[in-house]
Each structure stands twice: as structure tokens, then as C-alpha cells.
């Protein structure tokens, strides 16, 4: 299985699309980084915001993250979502499944797509964390709202964060966890696209943008139409330190179900599909 995953990840990273997505994300990150550098140039420590809260996905950093998250349904398909279709196109499916078994090819493809997308989406955010921690002192305790950390307003806001206790005790661990969640959501939608590309034969590659887009749109429409207090818009769930009303557990269940559904489809396909 490891051999299958390695071969397929190697094939994915031989293409230009993962690097293009990585560069787009890194560009967003660097623009935000240089903007922060110019904003806090010459400031005292007590005026500087905590480096973790200077992230592009920080909830108050709306100028950049709104655009990034709008692009997300399309970007998360690009690194590896077309991988199965390309394997059919180049007949690589025959080559790999002859070397490892057919089942190992399909399961390996699932893991490889998830991991590749995860790496592409997570790496720029860790680079950003590193850059921010080098450029801005870790002792800075400020927040974007410019209010005291012990004020009731701030505490109420922090209480609304998903896993707020973890944020209070271990902010860096909290940040790393959310970066991984961001990568995992991207990976889940990539494998969802992959599984549908195995299941539904389409004559055009571009149709594979539809499943992830429709799914995320569907979640957004629910909030708009039902006028619920709890937001279902994925934008509010993927941002860090967001205090909007949301149900993190329900969202995790939805993403988990998508992941499981994709896995089931791939497993079924691995047993029923004829390679040649």
C-alpha cells in the first residue's frame, strides 16, 4: 500500500497544478505578511497583535481571506482532484494497478489525493506562521480589536471560538490544529471529487469542479434561506478565531460524512471496476 501511495503522490507532484495552487496560496500569504510588516513597522510591543492573529485566515483579516475562501471550492480540486481522470487519460491506471493490486491502486489513490491536497493547503499556512513568528515578537499579546484580554467583551468573544479552552491554554496548538482542519477539509473535498470522477463518467474534465462547488454552495444557501442564527456558510468555519454563531460539531459531522461517503464509493469501485 505504501508503494502505491508513494507512486501516486509522486505522479501527482510531477504535474504543475499542485505547485500552481501552492504558489497562489503562498502569494496570498506573502501579500498579507508584507501588509502586516508595513502596518506594524516601528510599533511598540504592546501595540503589536499576537503573531498567530496576523494569519491570512484570521477572522478579522477579511480583505484577503474573503477572496481566498471564495476561490477555495475551485482551488481544492486542482492539486489532485483530476488525478484519476489523468490516470485514465495517460493509461497510468493500468501501469500502477499491474504493479500493486487493483484494490491497492484505488485505496492508494484515495490516500495520495487526500495527502497531496492536505500538504498543498497546509504548508503555506505553516510558512506564514514561521514568518510571522520571526518578524513579530512572540511576546506580543495584542488582538485585532484593541481591547483588553481580560475584558468581558473579549472573553465572550473567545468563548464562541470552537475549542476555546484549547485556545486559552495552548494557542499555538490551537492554531496548528485549525491549520490541519483547513487542510483536512480541502483534502476531503478533493477525495469527494475523486470518488465522483470514478463513479460518474463525464466527457469533460471541467465538470469535476461542480461537486465541491455545489456542496459548499448548498451549505451557504441554507443560512440565507432559513434565516437561522447558526451560520452554515463554510466561510465562517474555515477562518481562525471566528466568533460567529456556528455549530462546529454539526459541521465536523457533515465533513466526516463526505469523507466516509467518498471512501465507500472508492471501496465499491475498487472491487467492481475492471482496469483494462
Amino acid at each position: 500500500m505504501v508503494k502505491s501511495v508513494k507512486t501516486q503522490m509522486y505522479a501527482i507532484f510531477q504535474r504543475s497544478s499542485p505547485y500552481i495552487v501552492f504558489m497562489i496560496l503562498l502569494t496570498f500569504v506573502l501579500i498579507n505578511y508584507f501588509h502586516n510588516l508595513s502596518q506594524y513597522k516601528g510599533c511598540y510591543i504592546f501595540e503589536i497583535v499576537n503573531p498567530l492573529r496576523l494569519s491570512i485566515l484570521e477572522a478579522t483579516n477579511e480583505d484577503y481571506n474573503i477572496m481566498l475562501i471564495q476561490y477555495l471550492p475551485f482551488m481544492l480540486v486542482l492539486p489532485a482532484g483530476f488525478s484519476f481522470v489523468r490516470d485514465i487519460e495517460t493509461r497510468e491506471i493500468v501501469y500502477i494497478s499491474m504493479r500493486v493490486s487493483k484494490i491497492k491502486y484505488y485505496i492508494g489513490k484515495f490516500i495520495a489525493v487526500f495527502l497531496s491536497t492536505f500538504i498543498v493547503f497546509v504548508l503555506p499556512l505553516f510558512i506564514e506562521m514561521l514568518l510571522n513568528n520571526i518578524a513579530f515578537t512572540m511576546e506580543a499579546r495584542g488582538n485585532p480589536f484593541n481591547i483588553s484580554e481580560i475584558s468581558s467583551n473579549y472573553m465572550n468573544m473567545v468563548d464562541k471560538y470552537f475549542l476555546s479552552d484549547l485556545y486559552i491554554t495552548h494557542p499555538y496548538l490551537y492554531y496548528c490544529l485549525f491549520v490541519c482542519v483547513f487542510g483536512a477539509v480541502a483534502g476531503t473535498f478533493a477525495v469527494f471529487t475523486l470518488s465522483l470522477s470514478m463513479f460518474i463518467k463525464s466527457s469533460m474534465k471541467a465538470f469535476l469542479f461542480l461537486p465541491a462547488y455545489l456542496f459548499t454552495c448548498g451549505l451557504n444557501i441554507i443560512t440565507e434561506n432559513l434565516h437561522t442564527d447558526v451560520s452554515t456558510n463554510y466561510y465562517y468555519y474555515l477562518r481562525f478565531f471566528d466568533s460567529a454563531n456556528k455549530n462546529g460539531i454539526a459541521y465536523a459531522c457533515i465533513i466526516g460524512s463526505v469523507f466516509l461517503l467518498s471512501l465507500i464509493i472508492v471501496c465499491i469501485k475498487s472491487k467492481t471496476c475492471k482496469v483494462i
Binding site: E62, D63, I66, M67, Q70, Y71, F74, L78, F82, M204, K205, A206, F209
Partner: peptide
């Protein structure tokens, strides 16, 4: 190719949308 065509045209429209913010 179709993938590049979609990504570029939809990407530009999202860019215009983001400009409003």
C-alpha cells in the same frame, strides 16, 4: 483546455466580487 478556461474566467469573476469588499 477546459480546466484552465473555467479557472481563469470564474477566478476573474471572484476577483471582481472580492473587489467590492
Amino acid at each position: 483546455g477546459s480546466v484552465f478556461a473555467y479557472v481563469s474566467v470564474i477566478g476573474v469573476q471572484i476577483l471582481f466580487l472580492g473587489m467590492f469588499n
